[in-house]
């Protein structure tokens, strides 16, 4: 029997998701035994034309990482969707937009202006920007168009499953691959990670009081947090309550709070809004009755970058998707 065909592809990403696959170490040999990797531009000698020549649905599953930032990425994922039985959005950027999604606070023009003209190291008196087409005599050099807005994979094509994380841990990659190979697939649209919040699995959950109340917001470098204690209890913003578990509590183990790379728990559409409302609900809870409006406002104002903090990984998948710019 022919082995199932599998494709890996990347978009606006960092290569960390590819590294995560390589970090399977010896296990990658098991994967290679069980499936036929027919496309992995970073690693294998197959081209877009090979994919174009395939029958629709011929690829069993495509694992696609990265957000969608350029014209070329959009074309490729549409092609892969047509040719694939299943598409798995691999990693935070494909799932919810990821860090590159923070660019939705800006647009193409402001990004170009900064990168190619304004930064103090650039010497560009003529104001040259990269162009989709540059004419050199009779010939032209082309670049793919850079979009105004970063989109998640699910906003561009139909996605069957989501494998969250920045980057997804090797164990969850192996679990997903095994589930697909054994045909033990959950309902379409499922996020392939536990349906629990990070707080439920956090090693510090024991020390978390029944009711948390933040008296004062602290930033991670402003205090020396007790490595046994819940970050929220110490006043450090942690997105654990609104974030899905399954990461292995990796940041917590390094004594740092969660920033939400696994995205929201099931049923929550807007990760940032949920995180914000949770934090707002516990701010000054203990002395709520004694506090004036100004007191509460003062507490909230201590959060200097709420949009960036609560939507660090999920801006493109939020209700607003981006900042409105004239």
């Amino acid at each position: 029997m022919a082995k199932p065909k599998v494709a890996f592809y990347w978009n606006a990403s960092c290569g960390g998701c590819e590294e995560a696959v390589v970090d399977l170490a010896e296990d990658i040999l098991k994967v290679v035994e069980a499936v036929d990797i027919i496309f992995w531009p970073v690693a294998l000698d197959f081209k877009r034309s090979d994919i174009e020549a395939m029958d629709d649905g011929e690829i069993a599953v495509s694992f696609i990482n990265g957000a969608i930032r350029t014209e070329e990425q959009e074309e490729m994922v549409k092609l892969l969707r047509r040719k694939s039985g299943l598409v798995v959005a691999f990693g935070s950027c494909a799932h919810i937009g990821g860090i590159p999604g923070l660019a939705n606070f800006w647009n193409r023009d402001t990004i170009f202006e900064r990168a190619y003209k304004e930064v103090p190291s650039v010497e560009n008196p003529e104001g040259i920007f990269p162009r989709t087409e540059t004419q050199l005599g009779n010939e032209s050099l082309t670049l793919p168009e850079f979009h105004n807005t970063v989109r998640t994979l699910g906003q561009v094509i139909d996605v069957d499953y989501y494998l969250p994380g920045c980057a997804p841990p090797p164990e969850s990659i192996m679990d997903a691959v095994t589930a697909i190979l054994e045909g033990k697939l959950p309902e379409k649209g499922t996020v392939l990670a536990p349906d629990k919040s990070l707080c439920d699995t956090c090693p510090r959950t024991e020390s978390k009081p029944e009711k948390i109340s933040i008296k004062e917001i602290k930033r991670p470098h402003e205090i020396t947090p007790d490595p046994e204690k819940c970050f929220l209890e110490e006043g450090i913003i942690c997105l654990g309550p609104a974030t899905r578990s399954g990461c292995g509590e990796r940041c917590i183990n390094a004594n740092m709070p969660c920033r939400g790379c696994f995205g929201p728990i099931t049923g929550v559409g807007d990760h940032g809004a949920r995180s914000l409302s949770f934090i707002a609900s516990i701010l000054g809870l203990e002395d709520e009755k004694k506090m004036t409006e100004e007191d509460v406002q003062g507490l909230i104002d201590k959060i200097a970058d709420p949009a960036g903090l609560f939507y660090m990984y999920s801006l493109p998948s939020s209700l607003l998707k981006r900042r409105k710019m004239v």
Binding site: C14, A103, A115, A304
Partner: peptide, 24 residues
Amino acid sequence: PELRGFEKFAEGRLVEEMPRITPK
């Protein structure tokens, strides 16, 4: 043929988060 624009979207972020943002 690629750009993500870190130098722009860093603007407005809390600086202590930069060691967690820029590795991406």
